[in-house]
Design a protein around this nucleic acid. Structure first.
Lengths: 239, 239
DNA sequence: AAGATATTGTCTGGATACAACATGCGATAT
DNA sequence: ATATCGCATGTTGTATCCAGACAATATCTT
């Protein structure tokens, strides 16, 4: 079929369940399936020309990954994340990712560093084009994951990947804060330079600040959007 | 509130998938389903008097939680964890749990603290009885989760719960091969006392050391057992 | 007319039967 | 002995059916 694997598509053909899960995950991350949308088993099944069983299994998997929420007898929805959720996700990232970077830096090769550099260049060129928001998110994850790749910590990486996925559909929102993106880009270059100098402590510290700043700016952007979207139908009482 | 409703049917309507997943998770954690065991859909289905559909969905969910591994076309198995896996799991715990404790301590009530104290007492009495190893694991998790309960960080807790689950079937090993349980118990009392004094920094620091020590001792115990098993392959893991 | 109560339609949850493969093992043949 | 073939077992996927849960609408009562 035309369902191909996202990463490392090797000879072992993956199950339909995994293929459907990958496709849905991708659509949710890109925002093609918007927040609050219901994921109807039958619609997805007919859309991908599979039966409902792989769809149901894929939904269970995405639920366990934290990407969607399954409400008993009412199906699966893409949950709207509160500013507190965003804060929590970035807080988790700021704890886990520097630890992995610490283990990875001493083992990074020159090829890894130049590969990360290439990603950063693409990053800059894509940043101008407004229709490539999802490409930006993908490149952002690529840059980070290259830096972590030598740590050889699969369980860390599985969690980090899931946490990144959960929030990534909001990077579209984050792009509106252009000054924030410029800062993020500068921080990326600085982090890469510190990795090149094998300055583990400084690189990890900057990475933590980088994640924390990104989380704060996204949280603020989300709060702005939410309050703006509410055209004050009721009392204007807020915490 | 802190107890998962696993006994009987406390919650009126739960999906069969969730029920099967809970039951299997429990059996894996307790070691009733041993490491390396294959989880056959048909056997599980007939055992619980359900069809294979909820079983398959439950297996997908447990796979996403990291508890089991699904090998394409060869079904699901309970993976054997390497000493490096153990190290990684406890490393993740030592990063996440102190952060949650930090947020929870200021909000802990006197009832929470006395509840944790009750758990510690049960803990001591169960420690003597060798047939209550799984009860020990359950009480250990109860103690920790009570201390974290006021942080109100659901995503942290979901990850922490999964990571704890993944390694918990080895606590049985830890009980037999190390004398660290006494130390763990003392550390628990000290942590609880520091929480009572609202000494956030000291409590979090001790918690981190507590987790790191538990991880190191378990890793060593596992390495001993593995090398012993190589010399004497027909030596099971029974007391 | 307003509120309470049926009715209906849609979707999820689950069961059953069946087809299609993949894998491992053992028997057979060279 | 080694290689290959064939079969049993188990997973993976499909098709079809039925039972509940909800939501929206329609109907009935007062």
């Amino acid at each position: 079929m035309h369902l191909d694997a996202a990463s490392g598509s090797a000879i072992p053909r993956q199950s339909l369940t995994s293929a459907v899960a990958d496709k849905l995950r991708d659509q949710i991350i890109r925002g093609e399936i918007p927040e609050g949308a219901q994921l109807r088993q039958d619609a997805i099944a007919t859309q991908y020309h599979v039966s409902r069983i792989p769809v149901r299994e894929a939904l269970r998997q995405l639920d366990a990954e934290g990407l969607i929420a399954i409400v008993p007898n009412r199906g699966a929805i893409v949950p709207a994340l509160s500013p507190d959720d965003i804060e929590e996700l970035f807080s988790i990232r700021s704890l886990l990712e520097p630890e992995v970077l610490k283990l990875s830096i001493p083992l990074l090769t020159e090829e890894d560093l130049s590969e990360a550099d290439v990603v950063l260049r693409k990053y800059v060129s894509e940043l101008r084009r407004e229709d490539h928001v999802s490409a930006w998110g993908r490149l952002n994850w690529q840059f980070h994951s290259i830096l972590y790749s030598r740590a050889n910590q699969p369980r860390f990486m599985a969690i980090i990947r899931n946490v990144n996925n959960s929030g990534e559909r909001y990077t579209r929102l984050q792009l509106y804060l252009t000054h924030g993106m410029k800062r993020a880009n500068e921080e990326h270059h600085q982090i890469l330079e510190l990795c090149r100098q094998r300055d583990v402590a400084a690189a990890c510290k900057l990475l933590r600040l980088h994640i924390q700043y990104a989380g704060e700016s996204l949280k603020k952007a989300l709060e702005q959007k939410r309050t703006a979207a509410q055209v004050d139908p009721n009392n204007g009482d807020h915490p």
